[in-house]
Design a protein around this nucleic acid. Structure first.
Length: 458
RNA sequence: GGCCCGUUCGUCUAUCGGUUAGGACACGGCUCUUUCACAGCUGAAAGGCGGGUUCGAUUCCCGCACGGGUCACCA
């Protein structure tokens, strides 16, 4: 049997990192076992679903490299099938028509809660045939839940979980307007799509038992379930917008590399000995859903930055230069400088955003306005030294090693430490006291521009 | 409130009855150094509480506390 998993978000907002991790686990598990990883957009709630959200989810997954192995299934296109199954259950006597209105049900729930009873449906129509009074009334279809015994799920992550059937009530599977409810649609789709393993957030764990009612009533084999714990914010509460960057696309905009994002997400709730840096390819070989922990974990942005730095250092300079160029829109000369600088810059950045900010000085003619510290560095003494340095540089071969050698000899000749030369030079060239190594800056800027900037500062 | 799940350094985690409880990030110190980083060394830092079971519990069981999830004609 082919292993088949699916990621099934509802398009009511952007894809957040919790969903992204769930998608990653699904992809990893399926591919690890030579199976297929699918995407189903759960858009049966027309009032909350938007095409923009659908597009954003697909874009987010594509950015992460988690595009599904087949075109996404839109749940809304399958409503006729959902209704068909509901009516089959009705015909088989495993479901029944219920005639209460939504308002009546709400009142019923409130009354039950006021009396301290669980807010379950009372089963009024379960064994009652509709009379003439109901002939014209709209009805919902409810499934007949078992009332005796209990339901057991052997969850791949949570282990054996048992719930007494008395805790469940006769849930609605088809609304009075003929549309399916989520709990029903999910089961029908998972069955029809031949999903073998349902990997999702553990906020669905208790739903699982209701879904089992549909699987069982239809005589369908239940898939394996794996409920992975949720990701929480730094304060331990469920992730929400107030926790900062929780959208996948926000990470991208803040300069996170997709491969770093996957690594960070993977290490939340799952570990493999002492290994911290695990690429997608490596994860493919060692990931096991059964090793996922049961406790919720908190998003650690400091660690994400660190991981991002690791991947940044390993990335192709040309790729990084292109990403920076996208943010800075340089001209041809500027682009060439960024490319020349990149190997030195990627050693010290934690994000593409930092890379772009750090590369700004290289653009255009003349250095950007010096900041306070840089101005303080350009004392009269330093300016004099820069002027002499310009002379020395004038005859130098314009390559990084030659420039470095030139600076060292110059410093020696001046009888000062290299820092006394490099720092004023850095100030003159970049307008700041923080930059890539100064020989790299010199080389990237080119002779003409470098000498121009030195002259302007001395 | 009922039901379900969880609880190892600040954070992410390793440990699958016997360890000086390991690693990573963050934090302090040192080294390297042309700034910033990187790297290396080093320091501080953990099994919620109470009972069992056992020669021995972080590990198994029970209770409590705390945290989370879920109880819709939402998904």
């Amino acid at each position: 049997m082919t292993i088949r998993t699916r990621f099934a978000p509802s398009p009511t907002g952007f894809l957040h990192i919790g969903g992204a991790r769930t998608a990653y686990f699904n992809a990893l598990f399926a591919h690890r076992h030579g199976g297929q990883y699918l995407l189903r957009i759960e858009d049966t709630d027309k009032s909350r679903s938007t095409p923009e959200a659908v597009a954003q989810i697909i874009e987010s997954l594509a950015w992460l490299g988690l595009s599904p192995d087949a075109p996404p299934v839109m749940q809304s296109t399958r409503e006729a099938r959902h209704a068909e199954v509901a009516h089959a259950l009705l015909a088989a006597g495993k479901a029944y028509r219920a005639y209460e209105t939504a308002d009546e049900l709400k009142a019923m729930r409130e009354a039950a809660q006021a009396e301290g009873r669980p807010p379950h449906y009372n089963g009024y129509w379960r064994d009652r045939a509709p009379g003439p009074a109901e002939a014209e009334k709209p009805f919902a279809i409810r499934i007949k839940a078992r009332r005796e015994g209990s339901t057991v799920v052997n969850d791949l992550v949570q282990g054996r979980v048992e719930v007494r059937n008395a805790e469940l009530d006769d849930m609605i599977i088809l609304r009075s307007d003929g549309t399916p409810t989520y709990l029903h649609a999910v089961v029908v789709d998972d069955h029809d799509m031949e999903i073998t393993h349902v990997i999702r957030g553990d906020d669905h764990l208790t739903n699982t038992f209701r879904q089992c009612m549909v699987f069982d009533a239809m005589g369908w084999a239940r898939p394996e379930f794996a409920h992975v714990p949720l990701i929480h914010g730094a304060d331990g509460a469920k992730l929400s917008k107030r926790h900062g960057a929780v959208g996948v696309l926000e990470w991208r905009d803040q300069g996170v590399l997709p491969e770093a994002a996957l690594n960070a997400l993977l290490r939340l709730g799952w570990g493999h000995g002492d290994t911290e840096i695990i690429t997608h390819a490596e994860a493919q070989n060692i990931f096991d859903i059964a090793d996922v922990g049961r406790a919720a974990s908190r998003m650690d942005y400091a660690k994400l930055n660190h991981i991002n730095g690791v991947y940044l250092r390993a990335a192709e300079p040309a790729r990084l230069a292109a990403m920076v160029a996208e943010r800075l829109s340089p001209d041809a000369v500027g682009l060439a400088r960024i490319e020349a600088l990149m190997p030195a810059m990627q050693e010290r950045a934690k994000s593409v955003l930092e890379l772009a900010e750090g590369a700004r000085f290289a653009l255009g003619h003349g250095a950007p306005p010096a900041d306070e510290k840089a101005r303080a560095m350009l004392t009269e003494e330093a300016q004099g030294r820069l002027a002499r340095l310009a002379q020395a540089l004038g005859g130098a071969e314009w390559t990084k090693p030659a420039l470095e050698a030139c600076l060292k000899t110059f410093a020696e000749a001046e009888g000062v430490k290299l820092g006394a030369v490099a720092q004023p030079l850095r100030a003159a060239l970049t307008g700041s006291l923080q930059s890539p190594p100064i020989d790299a800056v010199l080389a990237a800027l080119g002779r003409e521009e470098a000498l121009f900037r030195i002259a302007a500062a001395s």
